[in-house]
């Protein structure tokens, strides 16, 4: 191996160690619950905990609903911006980036002022209302990822000509969206969906301040009171995120009509 290849490999190795050492250390620590031997006891305790099951299920349901609302909002918007309103693209891109700039805590306090129980729209007055608010908050939080994924996918196909071809064959707008556009941006939509899932599963600030029984606050609670279980939970959260990333790759390679 010549010198020109050694230096990048050293850089890669150092970077990999930077990420892997804490992860390995966390994993190793999570296995040391039983004195003198490695075991999965911390994981067994976590999985058996009704709080884990309830909070993970709650966050998973909220994540799926967030994805549905997000896709319904983002796909038609990105499609229309690209097809009919290209001049609005910078404005829409700016709006979708705002959640990265405005801290989640500011947004939540804004929500609490806007939608408290004495407001015109008292969403925080009931559990279901607050769940709805949380979903909308997560839709907004995932906008930068969802919009970019979908927009990038839309740019890889000639949506104008495909739309016109479908129209000339008698197709209506709903059919064009569902049978022509959506399947061809499926990879982008699913990428955005898995990223959204990963974000929602681990989100703490909004769920905690809106007082919802989500996985993020549960992890914080366990982290504050236990020793080995938080490490096991951290590894589980990583596994969920990686599974999402793996699914993005898998879906991209198995998409019908894509070059394999």
């Amino acid at each position: 191996m010549n010198q020109s290849r050694i230096i990048p490999w050293i850089g890669f190795g150092l970077g990999a160690l930077y990420f892997l050492i804490p992860l390995i250390a966390t994993f190793e620590f999570s296995m040391r619950m039983e004195r003198g031997t490695y075991s999965f006891k911390a994981y067994r305790i976590v999985f058996a905990d009704p709080g884990f099951q309830a909070s993970f299920a709650y966050s998973a349901v909220i994540a799926v609903l967030t994805i549905i609302v997000g896709v319904a909002l983002v796909v038609p918007t990105a499609y229309l911006v690209q097809l009919k309103l290209p001049r609005l693209r910078p404005v829409v891109e700016f709006l979708t980036l705002l959640p990265l700039v405005i801290p989640a805590i500011v947004i939540v306090f804004g929500y609490l002022r806007m939608y408290n129980s004495s407001s015109i729209l008292p969403l925080t007055g009931s559990a279901r209302g607050t769940d709805l608010l949380l979903i909308f908050a997560y839709v907004m939080l995932s906008l930068p990822y969802m919009y970019r994924s979908v927009d990038t996918a839309l740019r890889t196909i000639d949506i104008r000509t495909l739309t016109e071809a479908a129209q000339s064959l008698g197709s209506s707008w709903p059919r064009i969206m569902l049978q022509v556009i959506l399947p061809n941006v499926r990879v982008g939509v699913l990428s955005g969906a898995f990223l959204t899932f990963a974000i929602v599963i681990g989100e703490f600030t909004m769920a905690s301040l809106l007082n919802r029984p989500a996985f993020g606050p549960y992890m914080q609670l366990i982290g504050a009171n236990r020793a080995y279980e938080p490490a096991a939970l951290a590894i589980i959260a990583f596994a969920v995120t990686w599974a999402c990333m793996g699914l993005i790759q898998l879906v991209a390679s198995l998409s019908p009509g894509s070059k394999r």
Binding site: T161, N184, P256
Partner: peptide, 21 residues
């Protein structure tokens, strides 16, 4: 009339075949 109401067949320079089909 809207395009889908005209019963017209169109062939485009860029083929415009639906990639997912």
């Amino acid at each position: 009339l809207k395009p889908h109401q005209r019963k017209i067949g169109m062939v485009f320079q860029a083929y415009a075949l639906f990639p997912n089909m």
